[in-house]
Each structure stands twice: as structure tokens, then as C-alpha cells.
Design a protein around this nucleic acid. Structure first.
Lengths: 330, 330
DNA sequence: CTACTTGGTTGGAGCGCTCTAATGCTGTAG
DNA sequence: CTACAGCATTAGAGCGCTCCAACCAAGTAG
């Protein structure tokens, strides 16, 4: 349990500590003979370099800190995958930390990450106040995902929620629908963008927007629909806040004896794995999650390498995935 | 971007570096006057301690390394939550790393984690060979989750898959079912345990086991059912490999005009968020995920603190969650 | 008045590594 | 035979911190 050090390896190989350091860093200016001796000694002792000591001595870091606001959200898992891919390619490694959607825990998570003096920081869906973002961006190059900011010291990468809702509306209009309602995501992140996009698209088509308050859960979706059914007036199509909300809405419709998509078309948002299940088969809007992660990683590394200091604001285009919950208006 | 050091704080506060160190570690043997001076200076400079230097100098670590084989799996997300809760309570912090279900990537992830000389290591669902586990356990106290091992140098925490399948069978038997089939999870982790538990429970009830090959996906579940329907003979109840498999099976049954639970009862496994959706409302087996994380964290910290050296093998009891896909045999 | 405490404070060594400048060693040219 | 490359190798300082032993008042007992 007590690890051998460079000194130990050097002694066993009969060389100096500096030479071992050169070998470990793959320097070309080491004779084959010595290199082999060092490698053998390291192998024999089970030596592995002490990343922290290295980072301390070299005053550089190959660590990128990632704060994930919510580990349960599969969206972030895929973003992390994208980040991981570019980081690995460029010789960086990720340390991930979770904030549990609580501002105070997130703040602690970020400063814990900062304690490692990472080369850069990626904050995925942070809910901390802007001042905390500013402080973080002050200490290390920072990129924000699924959260916008006007701060010039950091980059942002986001899904274009307005465009996504627009795609949903366009799709429904092309199927002949005109009475299209939006189930609003309330306080959920990205909800305002999605609502704005819906309203703008409706107006673009000369239709009257109809926003129904709801939330990002299936329970809320079902509840909104039950209230709607009591009211009498019904739309012929729904643009739901997200997939969960859509599934809840569909359940409530079916309980009331209505069929999807025959009586009502429904479009979700996020293209979660849920939407892809054949039992659900939900028409939805897909965010390029992996791409978002890749771009965030690239933006971050550009800053880390000092190749850029102006902020970048990436807005990625979502796409429509047509499945079985939408059809032409009958 | 260049961080102030203890030296800077000491100079500004007019004290020695050692005194700043004492303040930072909250030592009681510092006068109020000096403490305030130091704290003010630190605040003014925006100083935050360098975690790596601290760890190097103190020869201790407050970091627990967590390798998650698959970030997309919500199961692990909840286990991490449990780990996080105990770690936080005891003053440790987590650094997470992902292995993408590939042995080679997992191996790299583990040695990267080891490079930080963490106080302990938690491997969640690792797919690496036993020798890699042994090497890791040799370098730091290690706990395994969702993977068993006979190595005496590490602890394991698992869900009792045999007991879980048993619960499902008992439930169905209590509802009057006798022709109960099992959709097998194939190569999925825990699949053998679940199958064994099913077979044992059937025999315990004096019933004939009926294992149908399948896999952990909804596609596979649907496919298995379609083949079954062609065969003619049908069970009255299904114990599915997991929730996804169950949902696929249900879709295929409904496509064939059969109703769940009227014509067939179905039990899933895992109690994923999917199962809880009202649209699905699947009777299933719940693993105490958070508890698994907590226990793993506690086991790990016991080893870290040297309170125990004998291995622990925790097997947690799953529980039955009755929803709408099972009913008494008509 | 001296001998001890005691609580607060400090210098300095050292954690495992990197990096610069210096060293030794060949071989070749003058 | 000396001079000087050019290369492989090494000594030693230093990264930001902790921790030990030493130190320095100011009080307390004998």
C-alpha cells in the first residue's frame, strides 16, 4: 500500500532520479540501454508516477474538472462522453464531480475541483449564481454547457431550444395541424427558450399560440391534460416541454379514451432513451449531445492552450425525430 | 489565473507560512487576532489552498476515486449519490472517472485515478479481468459494486439477484399463477443470478422452470415474445430480465392483441424511472441503489481508516414494487 | 529570584516530482 | 596532443504545502 517513488526506481536501475523522470516522460534523449533498465526496475517495483507531485513540480496540469449538476440526467452523461473523447485525444483526463442540483453543493463541488488546479473547467448545467461562475472563470479557463452567460471570460455551448420548438411546430403544421398547444416547462432549464421558439414559430405560420403551464415530469404532463379535458376546447396537437412531460400527457389522453396519434399528435423534446422504446415510440426533438460535449471540450482546450481569449457562444441545431405519435390531421 | 500561495497570504498578514497553514486547517491553537488577520488576507487575495500540494506534504488524501463503468446507466448514478453522501459526511471528496464499458479504457481510468494516490477506490460495475482488480486493490483500499470477486484484499457490495427473482416468482404464485416463464438476460451482468433465483423459486413451489433466452433490451424482449407467440403454448406470467426487456415484451403482447395484466402478468427488474412512469406502471424489483452506495462508502472508509482488513461481502435485499402489470390469474 | 509551564508562533526539512544548468564522456578536427 | 563539439547523464533547487522541534513571551509555583 506504500508506493515506490522515483528514487526507488533510480536506485534499483542504478541511475539518477532525473534520468527516471526523463524515461517516464518519454524523452528521446535517453539511451536504449538505460531506458530498458529503468522500465524494468519500474515494472519490478510496480511503480506508477505520482500525478499530483508531477503536476506540482511542472506547474502544469493535464486535468480537466467537470462539474455535472445532475448525474441522473442521461443528457449530461452523453455530454461527458463527448468531452471525454476530445480530452483523451489531447492527453487530458477528466475528473468529474457532482452538484446534485443544489447551488451550495455545486459551489462546493466547483471549489473542490479548483483545489486540484485543473487546466480547465467544464460546468454542465450549473444552477449557481453568475458571480460564482465569474469566480470560477477567474481561476481557470471555463466552458458552460446548458447554461448561458454574458461573461466574456467563459465560453458557452448550448442546444438551440428555440429552433427545436420551431422544428416541432413546423412538423405539425406540415401535417395540417393548426390548433397546436405548448405544454410549458415552467422553471426547468431551457424552458423559456422552448416556449419562445414555439410562440415565434406559431406566429410565423400565422397561428395563435396557446401555452399551457406544466413542468418537466410525466405527472405534470398528465395533470395538465386532465385539466385541459375538463375545459372542453382541445388542440389537435401538442408540443410538450420534454419527453417525460409528453409521456404523461399521452397517458392522460388514453385514460380519457383518446388515441395518439389519431385524436391528438404529440411531440416530445430531448430524444431520451424513453422516447425510443417501441412501447412509447415518441416523435421528439433530438439534441446533438455528444457533439455538444465535443465542442465544449474543444472550446475549453483552445482556451487552455491560450489559442483564444475571446468568448465563444455555440448554439447547436437540434433535429426532428419522427416516430409514431404524430400523424396528419384527420 | 496565477494563484496566490500561502507565502503571499503570510506576507500580507505579517505572519509566518506555518501560521497560515494552521489557520487553513482550523487549528484551535491560533489567537483570534492572528486568525482574523490571516483570513482577511486570504480573502483579499482570493486564496484557496492547493489540494495537491497539501496532499503531497501531508502524505494523506481526502480523495476517493470512483470508476463508473457506464455513466449512462442511472443505476450507477444513484450509487454514486450514496457514496457521495457518506464521503461528504466524513470529509472526503469524490473524483469520478468513466470507463465506457471497455476493459482497456477502464484499466486506463483506474490507473489514472490511482495516479492521484486516492485514499480509496470504488469500482462500479467494472468489466476488467480479476488481475487488474488485484493490482488496483494492491495500491489502495478498494470496494467493488455490482461485481463479485473472491479476492480477500477488497470488499464487495451487490444486489441479491437470486432473492430478487425469487420475490417476483413468489408474488406471481401468490396471485395464483403456475405457468411462469423467465425471460433470460443473456450476457448481461447479474443475469445468471436472476436466472438461478427464478429456477430455485420455481422448484421451491413445485413448479417447472421455463427459461426463454433474451437480453437486457426492449427489442430483445419483444422479439422473444413474438417467437413465443408463434409457438402456441403460452405462460400466464413473465419474470423479465429487467425493465427494458419487460417493456419490450409488453409491447409485443399488445401488438398481438393480448392485454397486460388481464391476459398476462409481467414483472420487470431494476425499478428504473421508466417503470414508474404512469404510462408504463410496471410491477418490478427494486434494488436499494442509494443504500448500496452508502454501504460501499462505509466499507471503503473502514478500510481507509484501517479499522478492518478482512473482506466484507455485502448482499443487499431487493424488494418488490407492485404496480399495474400484475394481477390474479383469471 | 529561579525553574517550569503553557499557549502561541516560527524556521526548516521534506513530500515526489520537474527542470535548468552543469558534468562527464566520447569522437572528430585542428 | 589539445580543443571542442555533441550527446547522455546528473546534481540541486524549487513547486505549495505540512509537520516537527525549537522558540519566545508571560504567567505560576517553589
Amino acid at each position: 500500500m506504500t508506493h515506490p517513488t522515483m528514487e526507488d526506481v533510480a536506485r534499483l536501475a542504478g541511475v539518477s532520479r532525473a534520468l527516471v523522470s526523463l524515461v517516464m516522460r518519454g524523452s528521446p534523449k535517453v539511451s536504449e540501454q538505460r531506458r530498458k533498465a529503468v522500465l524494468d526496475a519500474a515494472e519490478q517495483l510496480g511503480y506508477s508516477p505520482h500525478a499530483m507531485a508531477r503536476s506540482l513540480a511542472s506547474r502544469t496540469s493535464t486535468v480537466l474538472g467537470v462539474m455535472v449538476s445532475d448525474l441522473h440526467n442521461a443528457f449530461f452523461a452523453e455530454v461527458v462522453d463527448g468531452l471525454d473523447a476530445v480530452a483523451r485525444d489531447e492527453g487530458f483526463e477528466l475528473i468529474i464531480n457532482t452538484g446534485g442540483r443544489s447551488p451550495s453543493r455545486e459551489k462546493r463541488a466547483v471549489s473542490s475541483l479548483l483545489g486540484f488546479r485543473p487546466a480547465g473547467l467544464a460546468l454542465l448545467g450549473p444552477v449557481v449564481p453568475p458571480t460564482t461562475l465569474a469566480t470560477a472563470a477567474d481561476q481557470a479557463p471555463t466552458v458552460l454547457v446548458a447554461r448561458s452567460s454574458r461573461l466574456s471570460t467563459l465560453d458557452t455551448v448550448n442546444d438551440d431550444g428555440e429552433a427545436g420548438s420551431g422544428l416541432a411546430v413546423d412538423h405539425l403544421v406540415s401535417l395540417g395541424h393548426t390548433k397546436i398547444a405548448h405544454l410549458d416547462g415552467g422553471v426547468g432549464s431551457q424552458a423559456p427558450q422552448r416556449r419562445r421558439g414555439y410562440i415565434a414559430a406559431m406566429q410565423r405560420h400565422g397561428l395563435t399560440p396557446w401555452v399551457i403551464p406544466s413542468e418537466y415530469t410525466d405527472i405534470a404532463g398528465a395533470k395538465a391534460i386532465r385539466q385541459l379535458l375538463e375545459g372542453g376546447q382541445l388542440p389537435t396537437a401538442l408540443v410538450a416541454a420534454n419527453d417525460f412531460n409528453a409521456v404523461g400527457a399521452i397517458s392522460a389522453l388514453e385514460e380519457a379514451g383518446l388515441h395518439v396519434p389519431q385524436d391528438m399528435s404529440v411531440v416530445g423534446y430531448d430524444n431520451t432513451s424513453l422516447a425510443g422504446l417501441r412501447h412509447v415510440s415518441l416523435t421528439t426533438i433530438d439534441q446533438p449531445r455528444h457533439e455538444i460535449g465535443r465542442l465544449a471540450g474543444e472550446a475549453l482546450l483552445q482556451r487552455v492552450r491560450g489559442e483564444r481569449t475571446e468568448p465563444i457562444r455555440k448554439l447547436l441545431h437540434p433535429s426532428l425525430v419522427v416516430r409514431a405519435t404524430t400523424q396528419a390531421r384527420s
